[in-house]
Amino acid sequence: MIHTINQNIYLPRPAIIKELIVENSQIKTFDLSFVDEEYNKTFTYAPGQFMMVSIPHCGEAPISFSSTPSRPGTLSLSVRKAGTLTNAMHELTEGAFIGLRGPYGTPFSMDALKGKNLLFVAGGIGLAPLRSVINYCMDNEKDFREITILYGSRLPSDLAFTADLDLWQKRPDTTCLLTVDQAEPGWNGHTGVVTTLFDKITVDPSSTVALVCGPPLMIRFVLAELSRMGIQDEDIITTLERHMKCGVGICRHCHMDNKLVCVDGPVFNRAELRNLEVAELLT
């Protein structure tokens, strides 16, 4: 009865690593396609969603899309070495197989972003899910107003997605500012945590939606700063990372008060997070 993937939500589909991009010493981007060619044609997802990734003998972990569905044929997951599974994943080479199931989670509401100025604030691997949104917006530029991207990393050599950063910096309608916590020889750019970039931009709080992803501490400070700038809670959107096992709202590992991050999130606006016990926002 439950031997086919359509009936069994826990069965992954085999996928192959088509291309592997080394973003930095900690992050790799995996361009993937399903072994089942027919399935590739029908598979769709939305920015902000994630896949459960299986690696032989390592179980599963949730990984956000870093690619945009507006570029069909590409399905990219960007992965930072953090635990057993992600370390094993970093050992894989092009042509290797992994297992995938999904897409899961509530995505960014792209319709709600239409006609708005968009302010993206990311730290480290946190740019991965936002890269999906940013490139989606670039591909549908008529729908959105000005795009501002603030991206911070620990060291200049930790900056990920540098090919994208170059493209975004070259666009006339886009502001893309980078910062590092600590400079290295050859770094002429800004130094300081990502919130120090806020002084360099002007934001119209009434027409701006901010999208934020990064380490917990960064999220806390950035959200506070955005509120101080006058942006409404509903227009401050973040995506959270949690330990997950099922990805579909049953195992409860990703509980956050009465929410489950896998189905109610991972994308939340600040209004939804108010009154919740959210680790990222506790002071």
Partner: peptide, 22 residues
């Protein structure tokens, strides 16, 4: 692939890779 009982009372239940625990 195994499924086993777990419990939200365990301290490891929500612990993520890198030891961050929300």
């Amino acid at each position: 692939r195994l499924r086993s009982w777990d419990a939200c009372t365990f301290s490891g239940f929500t612990r993520m890779a890198g030891d961050h625990n929300p």
